[in-house]
Design a binder for these strands. Structure first.
Lengths: 105, 105
DNA sequence: TCAATAAATCATGATATATTAATAATAACT
DNA sequence: AGTTATTATTAATATATCATGATTTATTGA
């Protein structure tokens, strides 16, 4: 049989990234960055209306998972999407949401 | 500003499904079902060489999350993919893996 | 140096998850 | 009824994650 299987190690490593995305606020952050482009922490905190410490931890997790990258500019730290697959997943959700909207009316 | 934001409730609900996929063995199950089509528990257990109880629990979680469906035929229970978005994500991983392969050689 | 701002880290308790092994339930066959 | 095969559930334990608020660090400007 043709071996089209993805290696378990690859799947395990990728699973970690996916698991990080499996969180409502983190998806909100991802969407925010996709819509607004590179943004600093304060703007994200304001947009999501969540505690600063929580957002900072989410950003750090996403960064460690390779989903985001960041740079400092003077006082602010700016985050941006580093993993295009995350946007693929986000677009997949958008498509689904649009479908649900059509069904509802 | 144009409101293209996905509602937080939608993102939270979807996050649950994504989080379920964020697990190596569960991704292996998903891949197996995508490659082989509807399969029974025993075949999956054999293919993944994992404890039966663990696989059964993974299957149940994925079913509750809407990723899989199942039916019983005599003694066996057959599982199949119920959520096409999961395949979209899987294909996204395959593409990435292929890219990594190309880079390596 | 001092104050102000921005972001990261820490401490905590509460939940949730993963893993394993053992047991139970279901179905078919004799 | 008893047996076997298949799948599901349970219990126990260890680990991980979550949310919150307080504190700390880093940077800048006065």
């Amino acid at each position: 049989m043709e071996n089209r299987n993805l290696p378990p190690e690859f799947l395990a490593a990728t699973a970690e990234m996916i698991r990080i995305l499996g969180h409502g606020q983190r998806l909100q952050i991802l969407e925010y960055l996709d819509l607004h482009g590179e943004s600093n922490v304060g703007d994200i905190v304001t947009a999501l209306a969540a505690p600063q410490g929580a957002i900072s931890q989410h950003l750090n997790k996403m960064r460690l998972a390779g989903v985001l990258e960041c740079r400092r500019d003077r006082r602010e730290v700016y985050y941006r999407i580093a993993e295009e697959r995350a946007v693929t997943i986000l677009n997949c959700l958008r498509k689904k949401f649009a479908e649900l909207q059509n069904i509802k009316g």
